[in-house]
Amino acid sequence: MTAVDNEPITLDVDAAEGFLRMFHIAHPEAGPVGPRLAEVREEVAETGTYRHTTHELAYGARIALRDSGWCTSGVPWRRLKVRDLRGFRNAGAVAAECVEHLRLATNGGEIRPLVTVFAPDTPTAPGPCVWNEQLVRYAGHGDGSGDRRYREFTDAVRGMGWRPPAPPGRFDLLPLVVETAHEGVRLFDVPPDVVHEVLLEHPDLPWFGRLGLRWHAVPVITNMRLVIGGVTYPAAPFNSWFVGSEIGARSLADEHAYGAARPVAEALGLDTSTERSLWRDRAVVELNRAVLHSFDLAAVTITDHHAESRHRLSWLRSRQRHSGNRPAFRLDPAAARRARAGGPARFSPAPEETTQPQSPGRLAELLRRRVEGVGGAVGG
């Protein structure tokens, strides 16, 4: 059995049963859940896992995005398009379809929320994974230019053979890093012509444009795994649209990213010798204004943090406290490390004690007992 992040691939059978019941309650037109449970029990008994129907997959992905908190205000989650690419396991195909996801999501600036689901983890064939935090990220270089958050990641991919443009720039696109169990780690350049970038200017400050700041239009999150009914999809890129402060405050102003707050403050003539002057706060406000103004001017979908705060409060009030078996997008600590440090690899040799066949779980065992006449049938 292949191990991922030093853990064997197993199926949470309780989650499978809970999800199927949840799906059939939400979709009575699918008929009673009993026959579907029986079908899944048989499949689990034979293979150790099961395959979602197209409708189950779409429903699970939509619920996961809705409940995750990543779904920004205005996203029609019920009509969210889910691209079912579960047959894709090879790194080249995954990379190409990630780029196609970006093209479709950009949609000329009228951002289209999408989820693309690649092959799942199974006991015999683990799915691919993407190391990058987002499909579009900028390199951080040794001279301090670029996005400093990704300095280690940049160094790692350079060690794998990637070469930045000469001379290195502030907004060099990092390659997409895709890992599969059968191919290992492979790098793919993101074509610049599919990355829609917005040049930043300010509605009231004519000099702002000379700072040379820009940002990409679509946040495609690529390193979170989608878990639906016990089945894990390690590569399931999804996007909503940006909140302006994610760009202005978190990416551009932050000293650990682009550190643009100080040059903005200095251009404004603010006292940067002491934090008590609140120069940083005033600079961040102007950066956020520039982002919202520029995205609106370029007709690229974006929301502001005030609208998003109201949306999040409403989401928190209406959110039901369900069990952990509901569909979810999850970020593993190892995936978070890969996105910043460029490692460790996801696939590694399994410890000897985990290479023995694993039990497919409770449903499979109950099915065996029923077939052998030892126990009763499992009710739907």
Rank of each mutant, 00 (worst) to 15 (best):
P206M: 02
R250T: 13
I221H: 01
D254E: 07
L199G: 06
V194I: 02
L200D: 03
P263Q: 10
D189A: 14
V198N: 02
G184S: 05
D204Q: 13
R280I: 00
I228T: 14
L174C: 03
L205I: 11
V291D: 02
L187W: 05
L174A: 03
D172P: 09
D204A: 14
R214S: 14
L268K: 10
I228M: 13
W279N: 06
E266W: 10
T274L: 09
A265V: 04
R170H: 14
E201T: 15
Y233P: 05
P191S: 00
L252A: 07
P168Y: 06
A261P: 01
P237C: 07
E266R: 15
E255Y: 09
E266I: 12
G229C: 09
A299V: 10
H293R: 06
F171W: 12
F295K: 04
E201C: 04
V264N: 02
S245M: 10
G248W: 12
G161Y: 12
H196F: 07
G248Y: 12
L270K: 11
T180K: 02
V218K: 07
D296M: 04
P191T: 01
L268M: 15
D254W: 06
A283G: 03
E201G: 11
F295T: 06
A181R: 11
L268Y: 11
R163C: 11
R282K: 15
V264Q: 12
F238S: 05
L278S: 08
F295S: 03
R210A: 15
L199D: 12
V195Q: 05
L173Q: 02
E286N: 09
W279F: 04
P168E: 15
S251N: 15
F188N: 01
A235Y: 04
E255T: 07
I228F: 10
V285W: 08
Y233L: 02
R210Y: 10
F153P: 03
H216K: 02
W241Q: 03
F238D: 00
H196T: 13
R225Q: 15
L211C: 09
S294D: 06
E255F: 01
A257H: 14
T222S: 14
E266H: 04
L287N: 12
L278V: 00
W241K: 02
E275Y: 09
A253I: 08
V195M: 04
L213H: 06
R210F: 05
A299Y: 07
S251K: 13
V194M: 00
G230Y: 13
P175T: 02
F238K: 01
W215I: 03
M224W: 10
D189V: 00
V190L: 15
G169Q: 15
E286Q: 14
L270M: 15
S273E: 14
R282C: 01
R282H: 09
P237R: 06
L199S: 14
R280F: 10
R214I: 05
G161L: 12
P203Q: 10
W279E: 07
Y233S: 04
H196A: 11
I228L: 13
N223V: 05
H216L: 01
G269M: 08
P237K: 08
R163F: 03
G259W: 09
V291L: 03
I221T: 13
T274Y: 11
T274A: 13
